[in-house]
Design a binder for these strands. Structure first.
Lengths: 144, 144
DNA sequence: ATTTTGTTGCAACTGAGTTGCATTGTTGAT
DNA sequence: ATCAACAATGCAACTCAGTTGCAACAAAAT
């Protein structure tokens, strides 16, 4: 598997965003870069057991990264927020997320495009459009 | 303003869903029917001050209504879930919700259609697609 | 090296939503 | 109308993701 982000790349991202280079930030960003899908604070904490940052720190790191647009809040499940890198999203739209109601897994549909809602002429200015889909994933729809 | 649902209509909906007719259920359903937008448990409780059902009851009523598809979880904001009637949604898609990042209001775009993601040939079976939009509402985008 | 300023850890807190259980209300059969 | 069966309710205690205040600390600028 190809490392999406080298350590140098992570440093560069943080620097150019005007964020200080700290172990926690590098850790969180690396974990998100290596993950297939979005992760909750708890999942990030598990993967950072070696540097074991406090959960408050992880939340604050995520907050700073979200503010800079580097990380997105992908969706909320079971009362927890799931975070992911914003690099698989176009300017105004995140890739859709599909959650299977049978096997309960969530999949990132990074190659799927859904057009922006046509609400420009009504005076709305779209900054960000998010699509969430529920249904049966390929595996479960065959079995059913 | 036109009452969307008469009391008889509410009774009928509950009966045909196989749900018992109780004060709490009629209350919650009426409140949602009369509301412009989605409401949280707390907002529903405020509007039901006359019958003052316990918050547990409201959560359980909402759960039963969601299970029957009468009510939808529209979106999550500030860690609370907002509920609305499912009657402004087509079979497989809810109307989009727009949240203004300036005035912080959320608007139901009931007349806006966004096509379903084209993921059928990949084996996904879409049951429900939800669209959330952030940006500036007509009022705020003029001022800015 | 020192100052400035942003970051971290800790412990205590918040509050939306949940759970178990005793009580009450709805419904359908008699 | 009465009653049994079962579903719905209220209450109090709980859960747990996320937040807050503050003191200690570390990164970057001088």
């Amino acid at each position: 598997m190809i490392e999406k982000f080298t350590n140098d790349k992570v440093s560069e991202i943080l620097k150019s965003a005007g964020l200080r280079l700290t172990d926690a930030r590098v850790g969180v960003l690396s974990v998100l870069a290596e993950s297939e899908g979005a992760l909750s604070q708890e999942q990030i904490a598990e993967k950072l057991a070696d540097i074991a940052p406090n959960k408050t720190t992880i939340y604050r790191v995520l907050e700073s990264l979200v503010r800079k647009g580097i990380v997105h809040k992908a969706f909320t499940r079971e009362r927890s927020v799931y975070f992911e890198l914003g690099d698989n999203c176009s300017e105004k739209q995140c890739h859709p997320h599909f959650t299977c109601t049978s096997c309960d897994r969530t999949v990132c549909l990074t190659d799927v495009e859904v057009p922006l809602a046509g609400i420009g002429e009504k005076g709305f200015e779209i900054h960000h459009q998010k699509v969430e889909i529920q249904g049966l994933c390929p595996g479960c729809s065959v079995e059913g």
